[in-house]
Amino acid sequence: MELDDAYANVPYIPGGAQYPARWTVAAEAFRAKLSAERRAELGLAYGEGARQAFDLFHPKGAARGLCVFVHGGYWLRFDRSLWSHLAAGPLARGWAVAMPSYDLCPEVRIADITRQIARALCVLAARHEGPLALVGHSAGGHLVARMAVPGVLPGDVAARLSHVMPISPVSDLRPLLETSMNEHFRLDRATAEAESPALMRPLSVPVTVWVGSDERPVFLDQARWLAEAWNAGHEIAAGRHHFDVIEALTDANSRMVSQLLG
């Protein structure tokens, strides 16, 4: 399809195919450490089905709030188990961190995944008091942006959002109609528009759109479209590509974590 190459990341990142294995090793080691310290609750259900579950990591002492990380993978692949180590930065700042999985296309539609993440946030909000900071990467960036649109979350949950940070998001789904991935998404123009945050008005909540300077041009465009449509913060991380831009979440003192948590 016409835009397949434009939305392909792996061929344009040195060692791109090795990143999932690297993430898996780092995440497993992190979970083992937090489990040994009794600061990890793993596989907590928020809905029906094995993938509708989240891992929850606790800081030392009382939590200042809850940070939720939503993973990417083009709504087609991956789960929460690859990303646990990204909780390190917020945890060190005293925030609890939750990481949900969700069902994948083509078994479900993207709109179904949006509803699943909203359900996960409702379950998490019932467990934790205080502010909710949302961060998501790639397809996860799309999903956290959708949470910042009126009517997606119940009003009492939406009112607790302290910051929403889409990292390298897909904010306008209409270009995906011109990719072979749409065989799995089953989008038409109407459903693509209905799931495109860049075409919607946001809640009154702080939003920062983050992207790496070395990402594919379409991801630079997608980030800019959302930032401009929402009059949001727009950070371009120098020298970062689609796979390493998220590494700043491991550093409590990074600009990304500081912006996310305040």
Rank of each mutant, 00 (worst) to 15 (best):
V164Q: 09
H241T: 01
P90G: 03
R115H: 13
L76H: 07
L226T: 11
D156E: 13
V152E: 07
A111N: 07
L143K: 06
L121Y: 13
T250E: 13
V170Q: 12
S204K: 04
A40Q: 02
A120D: 02
E37D: 09
V123P: 00
A248E: 06
V164K: 09
V123N: 01
Q52G: 00
I167N: 00
D112V: 11
A148L: 06
L56Q: 02
W225L: 11
I117R: 11
I236Q: 15
G73K: 08
G15T: 03
A126T: 08
H71R: 04
G233K: 12
D103V: 10
A118P: 02
A26T: 02
A139G: 03
V205Q: 07
L199Q: 08
A139E: 02
R186Q: 15
A6F: 03
L187M: 12
A32I: 05
A238C: 11
A111K: 10
H58T: 07
A227I: 11
A126M: 07
Y19S: 02
H163L: 06
G73V: 08
A232E: 11
R160H: 06
E195V: 14
G140S: 03
A50Q: 07
V209I: 11
L153I: 04
H142C: 01
I110T: 03
L82V: 07
M256E: 12
M200R: 13
V211Y: 05
F30T: 08
P197R: 09
D188L: 05
D251C: 03
D172N: 15
S204M: 02
A248F: 03
S84D: 15
R255M: 08
E228C: 11
V70R: 06
T24V: 14
A190N: 08
E193M: 09
Y12S: 02
E228K: 09
A194Y: 11
A158E: 08
L161D: 08
L261I: 02
R119G: 12
G151R: 10
I167C: 00
D55E: 05
P217E: 12
L76Y: 08
H163A: 13
T114P: 01
A92D: 01
H163C: 13
G61C: 13
P217C: 10
A88W: 00
P59H: 06
L249R: 07
M147S: 11
M1Q: 05
C105R: 09
S258F: 02
V135E: 03
V164N: 05
V157P: 00
H85E: 08
G239E: 07
A190V: 10
R146Y: 13
P206R: 05
P217N: 14
V144M: 00
A29M: 12
C67F: 09
G43I: 14
Y102H: 15
T179A: 06
I246R: 01
